[in-house]
Amino acid sequence: MFLPISWILGTSEWTPFDANLTDCFLRGLVGACGISVLCNLMRVYHFIQTCSDSETESKQRSPSPVSPPRLNWRAALQFWYLTFVLSLVGSRVASLLVLEFSLRAVSSWVSAGLDANGRGPTLLLIQCQFSLGCCFTCTLVFLHQGAPHSSLNLFLDAALSWALASVSCSLLSHAARLYPLHSTERYCGKCITLLTSGHTILASLQRAVILVFALATVASFATVYEHFLSQKDALKFWTPLTLCYTMLVVYIQEDQNRQIGAEGLFHTAVLRQGALLVLMLTVGDWSDVLQVLITFLGEAACLLPSQDLLQDMLKEEDDTSLSEQTSSHKTKKLTKEIVR
């Protein structure tokens, strides 16, 4: 079926269908479930923070992170669309995306250590959605390579991922409908747990994402070495490309720190994917180039529905800076009174 396409493109394989359609679909399903769990738990965290702020300030505020339409057909459409897109992205391109985002995360961590602004980890969680899905797909390819029952293993992985995604979606729906009431009445086990330990959700997500990227980085290095660096004199060609790409990632990170809002996110995504496209035009084949173009659609499908998370992050940052300014003003005023 894909032989004419491979012949036209001049490639021996039409990756990602290097195994079979079922395996590709199951890997894409696992990746989409991982993205769904991340987004749902982040929305639960921001919803809890919004309710906590409204109780502190003693006034009503509409919780933007959760709304019934977002929990129904829009979320389902995004989920199956990401499953389809991740099924089309092969392990070669997915591995490069993982390594690129890992490099950018390290650059962000270094820049945050030099000039901490408090929004780096949360912003990376919003940006890493599609790369997180690629982490699962390339890791599954690496782990199941040569396995005698890889399809059965992938089916079990997909079933477990589906169960976790269903639990996170149910938790988000429950919190959106009943948390404001149950957190005050205190007779619901889920809401009491969210009330007591919900503030740790973001930190737990950060640790889990770091672990996933660490495992995926190992698998990505093995995949990149097998497909790109195992040839003779490949290191002589890849070394200057890697240095140039690293400098570009650092520039993108510095440029992103100067930009705030959705435009900065999309600008960064376009620069990242454009640089990867140029790299694939240099060292890849036509299937790699097409898959990089497909990743543009995946990044857009993750970033466009995440505007509520970005707005909440910016709002929390503004509230924090405002409280710090107020506290500093009170401290200065108190110091003047003591001096007098």
Rank of each mutant, 00 (worst) to 15 (best):
C39P: 00
N40I: 02
N40R: 06
L41R: 02
L41I: 04
M42G: 00
M42S: 09
M42Y: 01
M42T: 01
R43H: 06
V44R: 06
Y45A: 07
Y45W: 14
Y45H: 10
Y45P: 03
H46L: 04
H46N: 03
H46Y: 14
F47Y: 11
I48Y: 10
I48V: 15
Q49V: 02
Q49R: 05
Q49C: 03
T50Q: 11
T50D: 07
T50E: 08
S52D: 14
S52W: 03
S52K: 08
S52A: 09
D53R: 10
D53Q: 06
E55V: 14
E55T: 13
E55W: 12
T56A: 08
E57G: 00
S58I: 14
K59R: 15
K59Q: 15
Q60H: 12
Q60K: 15
Q60M: 14
R61T: 08
S62F: 14
P63M: 06
P63V: 10
P65D: 06
V66N: 05
V66C: 06
V66R: 07
S67G: 14
S67E: 11
S67W: 14
S67Y: 06
P68G: 06
P68T: 11
P69H: 01
P69K: 05
P69I: 13
R70L: 11
R70A: 07
N72C: 13
N72P: 01
N72K: 14
W73G: 00
W73E: 09
A75P: 00
A75M: 01
A76G: 00
L77C: 11
L77K: 04
Q78D: 06
F79W: 03
F79Y: 15
F79A: 02
W80H: 12
W80V: 12
W80I: 11
Y81K: 02
F84Q: 11
V85F: 05
V85E: 06
V85W: 00
V85R: 04
V85K: 02
V85D: 01
L86T: 00
L86A: 00
S87K: 04
L88Y: 07
L88K: 09
L88A: 02
L88G: 07
V89Y: 05
G90I: 01
G90T: 03
G90Q: 11
G90Y: 03
G90A: 03
S91G: 01
S91A: 05
V93K: 08
V93M: 12
V93Q: 10
A94H: 02
A94V: 01
A94M: 03
L96G: 08
L96Y: 11
L99D: 03
E100K: 08
E100A: 05
E100V: 03
E100F: 05
F101H: 13
S102G: 07
S102H: 05
S102K: 02
L103I: 06
R104V: 08
A105D: 14
A105N: 07
A105K: 04
A105G: 11
V106T: 08
V106A: 06
V106R: 04
S107L: 15
S107A: 13
S108A: 14
S108V: 05
W109Y: 08
W109M: 13
V110D: 02
V110S: 03
A112Y: 03
A112Q: 12
G113S: 13
L114G: 12
L114W: 12
D115H: 07
D115L: 04
A116I: 01
A116F: 13
